[in-house]
Design a protein around this nucleic acid. Structure first.
Lengths: 240, 240
DNA sequence: AGCCCAATGAGGGTTTTCCCTCAACGCGAG
DNA sequence: CTCGCGTTGAGGGAAAACCCTCATTGGGCT
């Protein structure tokens, strides 16, 4: 909370996080840095447009996010935090504030949060495919200065990338690779054919084409077929 | 170069750059920060990348990039710097080094550049649409420490975002079969957004988005939006 | 002034895609 | 021999995209 954010400490934290070998080490470092600035609620997650939910996988959630004295689990967080959706519209870290009034909880994106309520900073992390993850930090009396935004933006990005490196390697394996059939269907789609047409060409049911395309979207972690085309081209799954 | 990069100074520079109102101010700040670290060649550009050219528009190019004692213009830089293409494969700032041997110039991406030659740091900048721009800094004897990478990454990202904000507004759309608006709509589509979402993001009617997309398909001579994505990527209208 | 065109938006439909679930077959790995 | 997974297919409904035409505004160009 108090004083000033030391840039020096932020740099050291980032470098430490980048070389961390466990999630716990990352968490500890973030806590140690952000704690004195008034942040004691944390969420770190990856984002995928594939689901109806924005959040794909939560790496770390901690703290009394909903002011009920209980620490939350991942599902609760996803269900209850509407601020999360805003990362779809923002291109830089932003502050938000939650006030509890007559009509229940009210979340807003603000320039600089103040007053009573729970405030926080949401940091989107972008990569070659667009939005890839985010970290949210919250607290009741937080340092919401430009310097804090800058420092926490750095830390959060490093934390997300490091955490993903640690966790996704263990989990995923080769997520994203398409099967032969899927590549074929997507290639025809990229060539402008409709599902019925592709079905006829390949001698399959229209339903099968549809199922393949859904599976493709899920595998590539995208929301629409149009996006799947782009991602597949980028990954070299199909030709441009 | 030697000594230590002060994180404090980096933070101050970023905050200054974010509020800069001319490109010259941004350039001056970057020079002042990176100069003492041995960097005196700069390129700042936006990326739209597809096939032939990665670079879309160069905002700032300065310094003796090719060791011939002359400052280069934009076209020369694009034509002669093969390192640029690497930003398509990288997801973080990376160092490179250029050595001149018997078989001409040799560029390599390295962990930590040393020795004779021109070295540099390439910083990709990502956004909701994927890779959006980059900044490259070079010099003969540069500080290539992790701290330098971190600080310059910050500075470069801020510089790119600030420069784009300043310049893109002024510049009108030039080349390309698609209009500025159409490219924008298609880019969001390729990023997985639906028409209604794009309408909300751009503050337009859903109808308008639909009309733009129809016009895009007509102009590109394709049947479906999925195909339009592929064709546009191939033509370099939007990024892969 | 007259004209073209980008950008915006609408009416009123049709077609296509998308979503969730369930199910069957064959094939290779443990 | 199960188990996972790729491939195939379906029912039923909801959402999104797509199609036509028409209309207005504002810039630029002749």
């Amino acid at each position: 909370m108090s004083g000033h954010v030391t840039a020096e400490q932020a740099f050291r934290s980032v470098l430490f996080i980048e070389s961390a070998e466990t999630l716990a080490a990352i968490e500890g470092e973030v806590r140690a840095f952000a704690g004195p600035m008034g942040y004691e609620r944390f969420v770190l997650f990856s984002v995928s447009a594939a689901q109806d939910e924005v959040v794909e996988r939560i790496y770390w959630v901690e703290g009394d996010w909903f002011g009920n004295g209980e620490s939350v689990d991942a599902e609760t967080y996803i269900r209850r935090c509407p601020v999360t959706r805003h990362i779809l519209d923002e291109r830089e870290p932003f502050f938000w504030t939650k006030t509890t009034g007559a009509h229940g909880e009210l979340y807003r994106v603000v320039r600089s949060p103040r007053g009573r309520g729970i405030h926080g900073l949401q940091v989107p992390v972008f990569g070659p495919l667009g939005l890839e993850g985010a970290m949210s930090l919250g607290g009741e009396r937080i340092d919401a200065s430009p310097r804090a935004r800058l420092a926490l933006g750095l830390i959060a990005e490093a934390a997300f990338l490091a955490a993903r490196n640690l966790l996704e390697a263990a989990i995923g394996g080769d997520v994203g690779a398409l099967s032969e059939r899927e590549r074929e269907v997507l290639a025809w789609t990229a060539a402008g054919r409709r599902q019925v047409e592709i079905a006829a060409t390949l001698g399959l049911s229209e339903r099968t084409i549809e199922n393949h395309l859904r599976r493709i979207r899920k595998r590539l972690g995208v929301a629409t077929t149009a996006q799947a085309i782009r991602v597949a081209i980028r990954k070299g799954e199909i030709a441009a």
